[in-house]
């Protein structure tokens, strides 16, 4: 599985460190909230809401430049919308990598 990195964030910020820091700060704040929301809806077996949470997390996965992680999220989101989620563990692994990475920033 691909590891998260800051390449995309640096590309988007165009080298402007203030902008880069602003993005990282928001990710640090939003990511745990989004993951918590995802777990809560998954636990309640509300697959449509969970699919919405996965959809929202896709942006964070993309911005941390996890190409395979993004594909995992797409597959999982589709499974959830169909009411047959089977990739929860794979997706959880993507989330864990993101959390570890973001906590080190």
């Amino acid at each position: 599985m691909d590891a998260p990195n800051l390449l995309k964030i640096k590309e988007i910020s165009g080298g402007m460190t203030d902008f880069e820091q602003e993005m990282l700060q928001i990710i640090k704040e939003e990511l745990p909230e989004e993951i918590e929301q995802y777990h809560s809806n998954l636990e309640a077996k509300d697959f449509l809401k969970t699919a919405g949470d996965v959809h929202k997390l896709k942006h964070k996965i993309s911005i941390l430049n996890m190409k395979h992680g993004y594909e995992t999220a797409v597959t999982y989101e589709n499974e959830l919308r169909a009411g047959r989620p089977t990739s929860a563990q794979d997706f959880e692994a993507v989330l864990n990598k993101m959390v570890v990475f973001v906590n080190q920033l």
Binding site: M23, E30, I63
Partner: peptide, 8 residues
């Protein structure tokens, strides 16, 4: 609904 997207 995402602050990160609005910021960008």
């Amino acid at each position: 609904d995402e602050a990160l997207a609005r910021s960008i």
